[in-house]
């Protein structure tokens, strides 16, 4: 009995989680004239892809989606490279002032984005870089969070492994690339997931720095679409549906790992 009750509650909850997505799909297939109708028209009569066609007519949607994808990938790759290299230095290369420098890295971790938005905007404007891909990417090239996370992982790699490589005549670059990196793969994967999601979802910074549709990312493009089509909810929902698809596909593949990464972050 209690068992059945548990299924009912969990199942109902799952429906509440899924319904907004399903309703977005249904709305996106509704013809323009029927969207604002009350009560909602549930008959599939007249349903079609009109809203999607309209979406593609009014904004360079594929380009915006492509922007979001490649910016997220580039930002993730940059962060993986820069953070893992710094992590190696902080864990394995002693030099005077290393502790102090690491403290500076950690301090930047605490400063929230909204503190940086105005001066970053001015910095970009000074160098004539507003409305460029570079401007969107720049603040995400390095990540203090990544350095911290990966440094912990590098420190857990037994020193004996390095020493064996040194005896074989390997320098730091080879130890880093061939010994350490393969051994911290789980931490790299976790960090890659967080980095990708952060870039894919970021809104405030692109909102500030991008004006032209051809450089927009999806969140910004969607917010803009909503601003233009305040009552054409079928078009807005079409945009939302299309923008969810890529992340959904990625999520289906990496779902176990994504959830495990988040679960772990709370156990530390």
């Amino acid at each position: 009995m209690a068992r059945a009750g548990r299924y009912v509650v969990v199942g109902l909850g799952a429906l509440i989680m899924l319904f907004p997505f399903a309703w977005a799909v249904i709305t996106s297939l509704t013809p323009a004239g029927a969207v604002l109708q009350t009560p909602p028209d549930f008959t599939p009569e007249g349903a079609g892809f009109g809203a999607y066609e309209r979406l593609l007519e009014t904004m360079p949607f594929w380009r915006i989606m492509f922007n979001s994808l490649w910016i997220a990938v580039a930002s993730t790759v940059f962060q993986l490279v820069t953070s893992s290299m710094a992590a190696y230095a902080f864990a394995r290369l002693p030099f005077p002032g290393r502790g102090a420098l690491f403290a500076v890295y950690l301090a930047t971790l605490m400063v929230p984005l909204q503190v940086l938005v105005v001066p970053l905007f001015i910095e970009m404007r000074t160098f004539n870089l507003t409305d460029t891909y570079f401007a969107v990417l720049a603040p995400t090239i390095a990540s203090a969070f990544g350095v911290f996370l990966l440094r912990q992982a590098v420190r857990q790699v037994p020193k004996e492994f390095d020493e064996a490589a040194v005896l074989d005549g390997a320098g730091h670059f080879r130890i880093f690339a061939l010994v350490v990196l393969p051994l911290i793969r789980p931490a790299l994967a976790t960090f890659a997931i967080f980095g990708f999601m952060a870039s894919w979802n970021s809104f405030l910074w692109p909102l500030v720095i991008i004006r032209s549709p051809e450089f927009m990312t999806l969140p910004l493009g969607l917010a803009n679409l909503h601003g233009q089509f305040t009552t054409e909810w079928n078009v807005v929902m079409a945009g939302s549906v299309v923008s969810v698809v890529p992340i959904l596909v990625l999520y289906l593949f990496a779902q176990k790992h994504v959830i495990a990464s988040v679960a772990q972050s709370g156990l530390k």
């Binding site: 710094a86 190696y88 030099f95 420098l101």
Partner: peptide, 30 residues
Amino acid sequence: YALTVAVFLLPSAVPLLLFTLIPMAGSLWT
């Protein structure tokens, strides 16, 4: 050795300086 350390650190240190530390100072100043 110093060069090695620099090569490992500069790719993160330069962006953090340009896009976090300098804007922080700029924000305080503003």
